[in-house]
């Protein structure tokens, strides 16, 4: 009787490694840096929140125009607005900022204005449209 040759029991790995490497390359190529996001609150009138307060809140007007900002009617640079908001915010955290946004301004202008208010610690923001 003839003896059989011993069988090789090794699993064929070459094709699996090929596939695995292709998967790895695909994920490395398509992966993107994770973007850290911030959510800037815009207060819209909430239903059933129409209580008239007895004390008129202190109001500050911040106008947003394309690539420019006006605080209380004065056109100021971003740094100046930031400085003024920080100094005003230190004294009164309950200060309400009325953010009037021009229809022609860009989203980035609005984000800048909201961001500066955030920096100054001012959280009572009302965004309205400047028509």
């Amino acid at each position: 009787m003839k003896k059989r040759a011993p069988e090789t029991l090794a699993v064929p790995m070459s094709s699996m490694i090929d596939v695995v490497f292709q998967l790895l390359i695909y994920f490395i190529v398509t992966a993107r840096d994770e973007v850290t996001e911030a959510h800037l609150a815009v207060n819209l009138p909430s239903p059933g929140n129409a209580k008239v307060s007895e004390n008129k809140p202190k109001m500050l007007e911040l106008e947003v125009h394309p690539r420019s900002l006006r605080l209380q009617g004065m056109e100021l640079s971003q740094a100046e607005v930031s400085k003024m908001l920080v100094s005003l915010g230190k004294g009164d955290k309950d200060l309400t900022v009325l953010v009037k946004v021009s229809l022609e301004s860009f989203a980035s202008d609005l984000v800048t204005a909201l961001d500066l208010c955030d920096k100054a610690g001012l959280v009572n923001l009302n965004v309205v449209t400047l028509k």
Binding site: E37, A41, V42, N43, L44, P45, L103, F106, A107, L110
Partner: peptide, 29 residues
């Protein structure tokens, strides 16, 4: 970032009409 506020305002008006009020603008930090 280059979207005009006019377009954002339209969306916010729709949000208000739908009776929702908690709106946030997403920015990249």
């Amino acid at each position: 970032g280059t979207t005009r506020y006019r377009k954002i305002d339209q969306v916010m008006q729709v949000v208000t009409e739908a009776g929702l009020y908690r709106v946030r603008i997403v920015a990249m930090l």
